[in-house]
Structure formats: structure tokens, C-alpha cells
Design a protein around this nucleic acid. Structure first.
Lengths: 143, 143
DNA sequence: AGATAAAAAGATATATTTATCTTTTGTATA
DNA sequence: TATACAAAAGATAAATATATCTTTTTATCT
């Protein structure tokens, strides 16, 4: 439902949000989030390109969040690495349908819209602060 | 968001629902739904295995729906070919999380649940009967 | 300036999904 | 019962997503 790549991106972002003190290297984040290190480096690159995170090269460099967790919807993270695609025109290319979607694709689109809305209204901060029994993906961190 | 395979399955089922008069061959359905014929045959096979459609071999054979469109949620179609997977345990295998999902994965799961609910409450009949400007994926049929 | 740290970029490999082609099996009907 | 029809099954191929490895560029600190 959500791609592996999006899942990795979300993990990385939540991890950075939990450790805002200083930049963290790909290797560190990979270790905490259990994402394959070299693949994560691509994911972080995409996140940096879309200004979800900021990268700093060189000694003491690494990645930090580009925004407050309050201002960062999960949707932004997802769209940076694996954009949610809406159905805009008939996938069957029926001439008679033109720009109108048939009922089937309207329904499919509805479900995509619903999911997108949930991710748009869920910020990273919400994830961090919601009451629950498990602290998000971080037994290795100090928290 | 929904796999290509699920999309194909839904198209085939809607097509059969619109043409309930007699069994239809893979070739016919492929033509109407614009799904690659040989791939569609695998998809229909899976639908038959899960009793969404009924297959008849031999002359005048083909596929018919196994249920009234009123009794056939889109979810059943989707689950037959590409089951919706819920997140049941921590994907990071954190010992401290055990059976509890962290907030991140609770959220992801919520979105999966929402989508599943929509598909569970949407029957094929609903697709056929909803008012709209485009008749579902069928300019080639008689309707 | 030189050494080192770390991201960026590029090249390659593996796995999964999607698609095609061929052969076999079962069924109706002439 | 022979024949044609159509699904079932199996084998192969192409495309895409995921993952790994290597080299290059850029920044920091002595």
C-alpha cells in the first residue's frame, strides 16, 4: 500500500525528529532505523532534493530535518521519494470517457484521496506525541 | 497505491458484471478492458481460485461472475489477486516493541484500514449504479 | 595545505512485478 | 468419437523496484 522506499523515508525522518541535537550520518540513521545503508543514502538524497531534510557534507556533517516536526506532514516525506499518483484520466484511454473518470476509477481515486488526506493531516510531530505504548522505532536512541 | 494487477482484476470483474448474459472468454474480456490478454488469463485464474468468478472450459466456455454484483465488494476482488497486507508487528523487529506497533506504524496501518474499509463497503453493483457521466470502462459493449 | 569525514554520483546486482508464449487438460457438440 | 474451443499450467522474458558497491566531490579541522 505504501512502498518500501516510502517506509524507509518515514523511518529516517522520524528518527531525525527524535534526535534533533546535531546532524546524523547515513550510517547512524541506517543503524537506528534498520534500513540498508546504501539504499538509505539514495532515499536521503531524494529527501534533501525536496527540502525535507538538509544535508551537510564534511566532518560533523550529515542530515538534519529542514522543518519543525509540527510543520512536516507525512505526505511531504512520501511525495519526496514516491509521489502519490492520482488517476486524472481514464486509464483505458476510452475516447468516450475523455476527461471524465468512470465509476470504477472514481472509486479508486477516492481511496487514494482518503489516504492522501490522512497523510496530509498527520505531521511528524503527531507521530512523536501521540500516546502509545511504543516509542517510534527507537530502542537504540537515548530517549 | 493499488497494484496494476488489482486494477486489471477490477476491470475484468466490472466488465463481467456489465455483461452477465453468458460466459466470456479471456480474449473478449481482454479486448474490452484493454488488459494484456495473457496476463489477464493469470488474473482470471486467481479470481476463479478465490471464487470471485466461475470458469467453464470448452466450447461456449469462459468466465462468469460467481456472485451478484450486490454481494461482491471490491475488496474481495483485490484480495484475490493482491491481498491487502496489514502491519501486524513492528517491521523493525525491535524487541522492546514486541506486539505493539509504534506510532509511525499505527498511522500507516490506519491508512491501510481506511482504504480497506472503503473497498469493503463498495460493491461492484455500487460502481455500476452510481450516477456519473461515464459508463464504467465499456465503450465496446452494447450498453 | 593536508588529512579526514561525509554526502553525491555513478555503476552494477538482485528481487519482484508485470507480461508473453507454448503446451496440456478438460468440455461441449456435431 | 473426432474436433474445435477455451481454460489451466508451465516456462520464459521484460520492466521496475530494491539493494550494494565504488568513485568523486565538498566541507571541516588541524
Amino acid at each position: 500500500m505504501i512502498s518500501q522506499t516510502s517506509e524507509y523515508a518515514l523511518r529516517a525522518v522520524v528518527c531525525l525528529a527524535q534526535n534533533p541535537d546535531k546532524p546524523h550520518t547515513t550510517a547512524e540513521i541506517a543503524k537506528w532505523t534498520k534500513v540498508p545503508e546504501h539504499y538509505l543514502s539514495k532515499v536521503l538524497l531524494a529527501l534533501a532534493k525536496h527540502e525535507v531534510v538538509i544535508s551537510k557534507k564534511g566532518l560533523h556533517g550529515g542530515y538534519v530535518l529542514a522543518h519543525d516536526p509540527e510543520d512536516l506532514p507525512l505526505l511531504n516525506v512520501i511525495n519526496a521519494v514516491d509521489p502519490i499518483k492520482h488517476i486524472k484520466s481514464c486509464p483505458l484511454k476510452l475516447k468516450t470517457h475523455g476527461t471524465h473518470l468512470c465509476r470504477l476509477h472514481q472509486r479508486l481515486n477516492e481511496s487514494i484521496d482518503m489516504m492522501e488526506d490522512l497523510f496530509r493531516t498527520s505531521t511528524v510531530a503527531l507521530i512523536l506525541n501521540e500516546p502509545t505504548q511504543s516509542i517510534p522505532l527507537c530502542e537504540s536512541t537515548t530517549r
